[in-house]
């Protein structure tokens, strides 16, 4: 009787071993599930950027020029629409574009302290195609204002490449910055002599540290602060996924490029192809990628 019992049952140690093995298997599986979710979000972000690239090329086919980084019509300190608005009809947002009517009503006539409820609702509309699914952003940007603090405007994540650093100039007024997008740039692709696959057009900016961007355009046309022209553009001279506040330069946050994808950012090159750029990419490579006609050869980082 006793012998039979001993043969049938199992000991406490065996039970613990089984629990430990199950625990190990779960511990191995859980991070994989999280990474699969992030991989899916990155693919979705990659799709958003691809659509922006196709829209840019359709715009180019229609008007024989890329959209300008932002519209500059003179007048110091005025805000105006950026490249995201110019390509709205090409990402199937024709109705929204018609309501916004940027051809007849400039942004500085909508973003005023006497803005009507309709104007405010338009400028606070979030466009899903301009939002990275990985980013933890609120609908309205409360942390960095848009030129002046009249009201909070909609958040988006995609920013256009103005160039590298201050040479040849900053993105203020209609100064050419060596990249592809600045005030009244309207570049034809033939001017991208480095080759469209070797020049960056669009990248992304995340919210938690850099306060993302806005699809509206520039908050001021005469300043390269993070509230002004760099609200919708970026300069590649700023480091990827870099905590400027902790490094001792909080003035520089929100001017560069960043994402919540682990290890780097997504970029769109001017040939409308999408790549993942590692954050450890050499600065000489980033510089060559950001200029449209510097003539430098570089080893592809992707």
């Amino acid at each position: 009787m006793q012998a039979r019992n001993h043969a049938r049952g199992f000991t406490l140690v065996e039970l613990l071993v089984v629990i430990a093995i199950i625990g190990v298997l779960i511990a191995l599986l859980l991070p994989a599930v999280q990474q699969a979710r992030e991989a899916a979000r990155r693919m979705s972000c990659s799709n958003n950027i691809k659509q922006i690239g196709l829209a840019m090329h359709n715009y180019h086919d229609t008007y024989l020029a890329l959209p300008s980084g932002y519209i500059y019509r003179g007048g110091n300190g005025k805000c105006n629409y950026g490249w995201c608005v110019a390509i709205l009809p090409f990402i199937e947002q024709q109705n929204f574009y018609s309501q916004l009517n940027p051809g007849s009503v400039p942004l500085y006539n909508r973003y005023t302290s006497s803005a009507t409820a309709t104007d405010k609702a338009l400028l606070q509309t979030q466009i899903q195609a301009y939002v990275c699914p990985s980013d933890a952003a609120p609908k309205l940007c409360k942390d960095t204002n848009f030129g002046s603090s009249i009201f909070d405007v909609a958040v988006s994540n995609y920013v256009g490449c103005a160039g590298w650093s201050s040479t040849p100039s900053y993105p203020v007024k209609d100064g050419d910055c060596g990249g592809l997008l600045w005030g009244n740039s309207y570049l034809n692709l033939k001017e991208v002599t480095d080759g469209t696959s070797n020049t960056m057009l669009v990248s992304e900016r995340s919210y938690p540290l850099d306060h993302a961007a806005t699809w509206l355009g520039v908050g001021r046309n005469d300043s390269y602060a993070n509230t002004a022209t760099l609200r919708t553009l970026y300069r590649a001279g700023f480091k990827i996924n870099f905590d400027y506040a902790a490094a001792g330069s909080p003035e520089n946050l929100g001017k560069g490029w960043s994402s919540l994808h682990p290890g780097g950012v997504m970029i769109l090159t001017a040939d409308a192809s999408v790549h993942f750029l590692p954050e450890t990419t050499n600065t000489t490579v980033l510089q060559a990628l950001s200029y449209r006609s510097d003539g430098n050869v570089f080893a592809s980082p992707y």
Binding site: K239, N241, F242, D243, A246, A247, S249, E279, N282
Partner: peptide, 23 residues
């Protein structure tokens, strides 16, 4: 390819500490 530039900014007392991409 797996190393890039570390950067820091000096404060009023001249002190700096380096930071690296990836926060």
């Amino acid at each position: 390819p797996d190393r890039t530039t570390g950067t820091g900014y000096t404060q009023a007392d001249g002190s700096y500490s380096l930071h690296y991409p990836g926060y």
